[in-house]
Nucleic acid binder design. Structure first.
Lengths: 84, 84
DNA sequence: TAGGTATTTAGACAAATGTCTAAATAAGTT
DNA sequence: AACTTATTTAGACATTTGTCTAAATACCTA
């Protein structure tokens, strides 16, 4: 859960998740949506991947990233049990 | 919301919130629950305070901290809208 | 095989972060 | 007033983080 909190603690990464909510995207497409170099975006994707917030699949020369929300349940549960 | 994510991105601060869920505590009582110096805990409490995750009230020479969960709604909403 | 496109890895660097010790501030006690 | 207790502030320091450029890797196409 530590990794998920860490991954969510960055505006760019949160924006990436929002993008991926709409549709799967290649690393390049994601990078184009930001004013950040591709290596930096690649690093962000790696952090999101380690947190299991995204999955990736290689298709030819492209790498397609998808949102994966199952780990969010842990966070949601943690927050809810803090509230009530 | 940035400040809330930032505040939540630390195990000690998350543990502090858990403690405060049970009961209000003075800064000193909170510090005793951790293997961290009082100044460090004070700094954590400041970060939680800036994120509006805790409120504090001075009572004599003590400062009593309380959990404040209203800002968690923003986070919860953000997470839920990412899921569905 | 050579050249082009997509992505990641490596290494550098400034800024942010978590921790500490020492000192300052504030309040209570004698 | 002097002393004790509770907490914060200031400053230092090592580690982590987000970014960059340059180079490496992987795949595609002619």
């Amino acid at each position: 859960m530590n990794k998920v909190f860490k991954a969510l603690n960055d505006q760019t990464r949160r924006d990436i998740l929002r993008l991926l909510k709409e549709k799967d995207m290649t690393a390049g497409e994601i990078a184009e949506a930001f004013n950040i170099t591709k290596p930096s975006i690649s690093h962000h994707l790696d952090i999101l991947s380690q947190a299991e917030l995204v999955t990736s699949e290689k298709q030819g020369q492209f790498v397609i990233y998808s949102l994966s929300t199952t780990v969010l349940d842990d966070i949601l549960n943690w927050l809810v049990t803090l509230k009530d």
